[in-house]
């Protein structure tokens, strides 16, 4: 759907993007992460056609943004960091204008605007002047304009920044809903948000793409896997026995009481699933497992690790 090939952008002496390549599949919600100044906004500006790249290509359904800008821009809806609103217009007038700008057939505009107002829960606000809307509704109007022309790809630049917690939740839910019908590329530095919404992540650091993974791959590709266990300790030292299993790195946080032993087991993330060996061992020791839950590797761990490595390399 969206493919970026060897994107490079230089501002005078500063290399803002350095040979960045990635793909976003149809109906995927992809998170673009990076610290401030990592190149996220530059990448999004190039992808949406606001700015030409120094080198490289942006392909949408196989069409090159540089060669067919008009056709490509029709396929993308863009919400910049600040919602691009004309403060003197009403919500409805504004959406009509954006539809005309995005070359929607004149006869189809009223129905299309109704659909968008419904999707973004702006029906009650249709006659309100944009300049009088609260921050949350302005953001909704920003998302609404990105939906004009029904573009298959949505590019959202930090859509929840500056919102209160309730508005953040509402916008996140809206994005998750949009992800069912659109391909979404979404930039943020709120890691929990990305973990919640996205099915894949891209991490940019100092203009380079240093990590790319599916959300499920965060666990599969992680270097360690951590489990919390509660075992009924009938005979023998269960933590010591678990330590002897190949692949177990550490057993920590041991708490004993009422014949139960609670512990945290850190295993290697690679190779066979250690849980099978733990099960067989404890079974032979007649120590029933009362609880075993995997702790999800937090995106924060991955982010800090890869940006730290990126820092070290540079």
């Amino acid at each position: 759907m969206l493919e970026v090939r060897h994107l490079t952008k230089r501002y005078d002496r500063v290399l803002a993007l350095d040979d960045v390549s990635f793909r976003v599949k149809e109906h995927q919600v992809m998170g673009l992460l990076g610290v401030n100044g990592a190149g996220k906004t530059t990448a999004l500006s190039i992808i949406t056609g606001c700015m030409p790249p120094g080198e490289g290509q942006v392909l949408l359904n196989g069409m090159d943004m540089q060669e067919q800008p008009r056709a490509c821009r029709r396929l993308i809806g863009f919400l910049p960091e600040e919602p691009p609103l004309y403060n003197e217009m009403t919500v409805e007038e504004y959406l009509h204008f954006v539809c005309r700008l995005r070359e929607v057939e004149k006869t189809e505009i009223p129905e299309h605007v109704e659909e968008i107002l419904e999707k973004t829960a702006l029906k009650d606000m249709r006659r309100r002047i944009l300049g009088h809307l609260s921050r949350g509704y302005r953001q909704r109007a920003g998302i609404a304009q990105a939906l004009c022309g029904a573009p298959p790809v949505l590019v959202l630049d930090e859509p929840t920044v500056g919102l209160d917690p309730r508005q953040v939740t509402e916008i996140r839910e809206m994005i998750m809903e949009l992800g069912k019908e659109h391909t979404v590329l979404f930039s943020s530095h709120i890691l929990t948000e990305v973990q919640q919404i996205c099915s894949g992540i891209l991490i940019l650091h100092q203009g380079r793409l240093i990590h790319e993974a599916d959300m499920s791959g965060l666990e599969d590709g992680a270097e360690k896997q951590t489990y919390t266990m509660v075992v009924l300790e009938t005979e023998g030292d269960v933590p010591a026995a678990i330590r002897s299993i190949p692949g177990v790195r550490k057993v920590r946080g041991i708490q004993r009481g009422e014949g139960r032993c609670r512990m945290t087991v850190e295993c290697s993330g690679h190779g066979d699933d250690v849980r099978v060996r733990i099960f067989h061992l404890l079974s032979s020791m007649n120590a029933p497992i009362l609880q075993l839950s995997a702790q999800r590797n937090s995106l924060e761990d991955v982010f800090l690790r890869v940006t730290g490595e990126g820092e070290a390399k540079s």
């Binding site: 500006s45 949406t48 056609g49 606001c50 700015m51 800008p69 008009r70 056709a71 821009r73 029709r74 993308i76 863009f78 910049p80 960091e81 600040e82 919602p83 691009p84 609103l85 004309y86 403060n87 954006v98 700008l101 995005r102 070359e103 304009q145």
Partner: peptide, 14 residues
């Protein structure tokens, strides 16, 4: 001022 320049530049308008 309104950040609408990005709306125009990302639209099909040349």
């Amino acid at each position: 001022q309104n950040h609408t320049d990005q709306l125009l530049l990302s639209s099909p308008a040349s």
